[in-house]
């Protein structure tokens, strides 16, 4: 069972709702993912073509909305978006994103720490999106982060666990759940993160942009379960070659 901010979840796969080709595909993929937590963003309404309302499309009884502060370039903008989110009915959960550089989309650690402190004190359950920095992860827990979300690789790159070693340290030190977010491009990447002991992963692009998002959502769901089971079981040590079959009982091959 995954527990974040005192709430229990069966699924360890969080899914993003961006980039899907249609609401219908998104809904089917989310069902297949088994996810209980889904991320959403806040944007201006397009006055010419308002489109579908995602609040109406998704069953709020079934999915916990985890609004993000994507687009925020500093702490003040993130806090403004957080309060808008709460006023819009988004609740108290927040994936905090502060990304000043649109080229890399890498999070600003200083502004993220400042915003986490302000928002945690304001009653939000803050899940900050961070570069895989073990020291920052601890500092965020000190100021009240409900979980930490280190990036496997920059958003949308599908590169996998580029920051593997740093994420291992974050997991080893964590007092709150670690959700590996961003850059996971294949179910094998998600499984590897779970095998390392991550508490959960968040996937968006790899599912939404797959040729068949519904099948890919199922594949990620299975990979996350497989990786988790492997972690719970414990993996055997790596080392020198050793035969899997018995050494004994081969005497009949020897010449007499």
């Amino acid at each position: 069972m995954l527990t974040i901010a005192g709430r229990d979840f069966h699924s360890r796969l969080l899914t993003g709702t961006g980039k899907f080709s249609s609401s219908a595909v998104m809904i089917e993929a989310l069902e297949e993912s088994g996810s209980e937590i889904v991320t959403v963003a806040l944007r201006r309404v397009d006055l010419v073509d308002p489109g579908d309302d995602i609040m109406a499309a998704l069953d709020r009884e079934r999915y916990l909305f985890l609004p993000n502060t994507s687009g925020a370039r500093n702490s003040d903008e993130a806090v403004r978006l957080a309060r808008l989110s709460r006023a819009a009915g988004g609740g108290d959960w927040l994936k905090l994103e502060v990304t000043p550089d649109p080229r890399t989309l890498l999070p600003d650690p200083v502004e993220t720490l400042m915003a986490t402190e302000v928002l945690a004190a304001d009653g939000f359950h803050v899940l900050p999106y961070i570069n895989a920095d073990p020291v920052l992860a601890l500092r965020l827990q000190d100021v009240g982060a409900a979980a930490v979300m280190p990036l496997g690789a920059p958003i949308g790159t599908n590169l996998g666990l580029v920051n593997r070693y740093q994420i291992e340290i974050i997991i080893d030190q964590a007092r709150v759940p670690v959700v590996v977010d961003a850059g996971l491009g294949a179910p094998s990447h998600a499984a590897a993160a779970m095998e390392m002991g991550a508490d959960a992963v968040l996937v968006n692009t790899a599912i939404a942009m797959a040729p068949d998002p519904v099948v890919m959502a199922r594949s990620f769901s299975l990979a996350v379960k497989a990786g988790r089971d492997a972690f719970v079981s414990g993996l055997p040590e790596t080392g020198s070659p050793r035969a899997s079959s018995p050494d004994a009982g081969l005497g009949f091959l020897d010449k007499s």
Partner: peptide, 10 residues
């Protein structure tokens, strides 16, 4: 006036 709402996002 800013009119804002939830949209799909990661």
């Amino acid at each position: 006036l800013e009119i804002i709402r939830f949209v799909g996002g990661g």
